[in-house]
Amino acid sequence: MAETRQFLRIGLMGADYLLPNSTSFVIEKREHLDINDTPGALIAAWQVTPGGRVPAYSVDADLNPLPRHNWQRAVFLKFGGQSLGLIADELQLLAGEDVRVEPLIPPGPAPTSAGHVINGAWVRAGQTPVLVFEPHALAGYLTQLKGSA
């Protein structure tokens, strides 16, 4: 049976992104996470799993680390046997038939060794395009944050 294509809309400080379900992800509510109360910490919370703690990073609309506390949910991406999380202001599942993604290669050098974190966009008439994450590059970017945390 064919897998149903979905997208997760991730709201980050006024900017919207889409994450395709070609990568596994888990959404967790704040109350199910271990909150990091350290002022200025890059890691906002941890997901506690049998294998250990998985960090969730707080970033701004440009994906730069930005400590903040007024958030309610996080999304954890699973890739290559590990997980990393992202704090989100909004999370919404969208059916694949409602979203038309066009390919996009951003000009300029790629910000991660895995390439550009964006590889597509959903363009609707009269609305600002919604950029689509390339899951492996996003995971690579979050891994870089893990190294600097």
């Binding site: 900017a15 440009d62 994906l63 066009e102 951003p106 300029g108 395009p129 950029l131």
Partner: peptide
């Protein structure tokens, strides 16, 4: 020039992405 979608960690000369005829178009 409408509101552009900002591209994370883009060089300063990449102003963002324009929606044009249902296509994404980077604007420099």
């Amino acid at each position: 020039l409408p509101r552009l979608a900002g591209v994370p960690h883009a060089p300063s000369w990449l102003l963002g992405v324009l929606g044009w005829r249902l296509r994404p178009v980077p604007v420099i």
